[in-house]
Simulated scan of single mutants.
Amino acid sequence: MASIDFSEEIRALRATYANVEQVIDVEKLEADVARLSEAAGVPDLWDDPAAAQKITSELSHRQHELKRVREIGSRIDDLEVMVQLAAEEDDADTLAEAGNELTALKRALSELEVVTLLSGEYDERAAVVTIRAGAGGVDAADFAEMLMRMYLRWAERKGYQTAVMDTSYAEEAGLKSATFEVNAPYAFGTLSVEAGTHRLVRISPFDNQGRRQTSFAAVEVIPLIEQTDSIEIPENEIKVDVFRSSGPGGQSVNTTDSAVRLTHIPTGIVVSMQNEKSQLQNRAAALRVLQSRLLLVKKQEQDAKKKELAGDVKASWGDQMRSYVLNPYQMVKDLRTDHEVGNTGAVFDGEIDDFIDAGIRWRAGQRTNAE
């Protein structure tokens, strides 16, 4: 009886896997790996370090993606063999092991399936994430730092490269704001569902009367600009300020004006960078992020025009998208998808895949309903 149940489950797995293979386009992925491998093998590759880094990084990402797809196919084959052997020998232990593997495969295939829903114009890009403390004083600044750690831990668990680009520390504790890059395939498409206002409810560790405090932090996610993107910013539209970078509590990091603040005059967008060693490096990094933000603004304007032509679409993202409650009970709940968990410690330690997956599926559903 168990083998019949497993057979049905395996058939369902194979059907889903075949659909995922088709959407991901494994043949194109293999061709990309072959092309990039050839490019990475030329003798003078590192004569241009920036180009070499881009090629090797993209090759690594594509190889990882291809390996991930192929491994799931192999695991489905292995599961079928395991079930057949267990049934022939009436081995209950092996059948139990097969059941565990079936559960794990469903999870892995579900995660892979989510990638097929990332079809936006910039979804494949690396992401630049900015977190800003909102209402709530020192608790909000502390919350902003908690969120930054949460996302960096998530990226670390995934093996994604990250780089902190700018941090502005609050006076007492936490962060006024922080900007960091996540360099991985589909980082923007994946993390863009995290954009919005996050709310924290807890007994404030900064209140000597032990009162409950509600605080807010805003998360912004933009795609990283590429050289092929045509975002030109006239020099007369940018105001440049230089200042000395500093660390927590105002501690001096260096004694030269190496930090850079760019203000885009027409839009009022401000970008600060202080983590590079030289003013030129910080200015280049700040300009790249400014271009990324303007690229996203341009796309949002286009999307707004489309919405205007299509009519009002309900169930918009809204400002407050997730609540983290630590008192009087413990729960993290996404207000768009209704997904919730009780293990708040795990969430703040980077276990947010279920929230991200639910958000991506929810967004895909909203797009389908709007068409």
Rank of each mutant, 00 (worst) to 15 (best):
D229V: 06
T228G: 09
A259V: 03
G249C: 08
K239Q: 11
K239N: 05
D207K: 00
L200V: 10
R212S: 02
V201C: 02
E232F: 08
D229Y: 01
I225A: 11
T214I: 15
R261M: 05
T256V: 12
E220Q: 12
I222W: 00
V253T: 15
V260A: 11
N254E: 14
G249A: 10
N183S: 13
G250C: 10
H264W: 01
A184I: 02
G210E: 03
S258A: 08
R244M: 15
I265V: 14
T255A: 15
A218Q: 03
T228I: 11
I203M: 07
I265R: 15
T256K: 11
I233K: 12
P266S: 12
P205Y: 02
L191N: 10
F206D: 07
T263D: 06
T197N: 04
V219C: 10
G247M: 06
D229R: 06
V240G: 04
T197S: 03
G210P: 05
T263I: 13
G189N: 02
T214W: 14
I233T: 11
A187H: 08
V260L: 04
F206H: 14
V221P: 00
R261W: 02
T197Q: 14
I233M: 12
A195N: 06
D257P: 09
P185D: 12
I231C: 04
S252R: 13
Q227S: 14
V260R: 04
G249V: 09
N254D: 14
H198S: 08
R211M: 01
T263H: 11
Q213Y: 07
N254H: 12
V221W: 04
Y186E: 00
I203R: 09
N254R: 15
S230G: 07
A178R: 13
I233P: 10
T214L: 11
G210M: 06
Q209Y: 00
P185S: 08
R199N: 00
R202L: 03
V260P: 05
I238V: 11
L200S: 09
S204Y: 10
T228Q: 14
A178I: 14
H198Y: 04
E194R: 07
L262F: 04
D229H: 00
E235N: 14
S230L: 14
E232G: 08
I238M: 08
A178N: 01
P248E: 03
I238S: 08
P234W: 05
E226N: 15
Q251D: 12
A218C: 10
F188H: 04
E237R: 14
E226I: 15
L191R: 01
N183I: 15
S230F: 05
G196F: 04
V260G: 13
I222K: 06
D229A: 08
G250F: 03
F188P: 02
E226L: 12
I203S: 02
V221L: 08
N208P: 15
